[in-house]
Amino acid sequence: MKHPRGAAAGLPMRRQSAGHHPARRVPSATEPASARPRRWPRWAWWTGAILVLALAVAAAVSHRHKLAGASHLLAHVSGPGLAVAVAFEAASLVFLAALQRWLLRSAGGRLGLGTMAGVVVAANAMAGILPGGSALSVAWTVRQLQRRGIALALATAVLIAAGVLSALALALLVALGALAADPAGRAPGLRTALLASAAVLAAAILLAVCLIRSARFHRAARHAWTYVTARWRAGRRLADFLAEVFHQAKTIQPGVRGWARPFGMALGNWTCDAAALAAVLWALNIGVPWRSVLIVYGLTQISISLRLTPGSLGIAEASLSTLLVIYGLRADQAIAAALLYRIVSFWTLQPIGWTSWLRLTLRQTRAQPGTGGSRGRTGGPWRLTARHGRYHTPRDR
């Protein structure tokens, strides 16, 4: 879906007063192409996506006999095993919703788990299929939280914290998978590289913790930020917003031991999804490579997060099937497992997510006829007041 910009999107255009530079002129259709603004990044993205899909189709045609074997396996999938995979996938989404809800509640926010789960499922569907869906889903999630009385800075801080915890949990899962893998087994070099990367990441986290606790680093950072914002006019607004986000993030202070609970939720999100992959293999009557399943799963999720194609179509299937073949599965088994896992973890969630998106949108429209603001009450039993602004977080209905 294209998003109009400027006046076409209904946005007010600033008048230019004396002493200001004139507004940038929009080139007409009669001007040469060199004078028009370039849009090559968007075309480059689509070109890359089409190229990847074309390569996937070519690979499928050249491996028709393996696809035939995969289709035979899919035709004889076990119902109980498939149900277990679906249950683990549902539990994974519940863990993700519980993580974001816990972070909100620790800062004083109030939001039901059902509502948070609906927002998470809808945002997951947006991120999975739309071009630039990750950014759109984040913006939509923030907007939904705002309409439920959560301040912009607090919503941003919660999503950032949830993203950091999820990234660390996935890194831990991959590191555990590398430790569990057989040193003398398949792809020992990959295992060594993953362990080295985990050691570098652990050192970087330790350094970041030391810097955060250093008063000298805080003073240097404040001086540098003041210098930048004093010479960059737009940076002042950004500085105010980031200061507000940081202030709201500091309200999420469960203590060192308290962080174990949200980290456990983030780890549960990935673990249940990895268990869904193992259940898919079981449903296809394929032996699960237990010592390497975490490496296969973690590296597949990293490739999916790159979003090189809409929904990582072709990328996810190729990555998962290739890694499964590397760690001992036959090609037809790997293809069948990759396709069924994507059906469970991606395609099944798309209609559910868009149904949730439509339900939340229609409820929002009915609750706010003819208005553009939130219907929530101002005030309530608690209120969060920003240090650098006047954001108030009313209680959710």
Rank of each mutant, 00 (worst) to 15 (best):
G373S: 15
L53R: 06
L242S: 10
A215K: 13
L55V: 06
A139P: 04
L176D: 08
S345H: 03
T393A: 13
G79Q: 09
A162M: 12
L74D: 03
A275H: 01
L195G: 02
L11W: 12
F241D: 03
L136Y: 06
I160E: 05
R14D: 11
V158L: 02
A274N: 05
P369I: 05
A274Q: 08
A278Y: 04
W225H: 10
A178T: 01
A90T: 11
L324H: 04
K250R: 15
A249N: 09
R186F: 14
L159I: 07
L281M: 14
A153T: 05
G268T: 00
H20V: 07
R213G: 10
K2S: 09
R36W: 10
P381D: 13
L194P: 07
Q368L: 08
R359W: 12
R38K: 09
G48E: 06
E317L: 00
S92Y: 08
W140Q: 09
H21Q: 10
L211I: 04
V77Q: 03
L152R: 00
S106K: 12
I205L: 15
G118R: 12
Q146A: 05
A90P: 01
R15P: 09
V158E: 11
D273A: 08
T393K: 04
I315V: 15
V325R: 11
G10A: 11
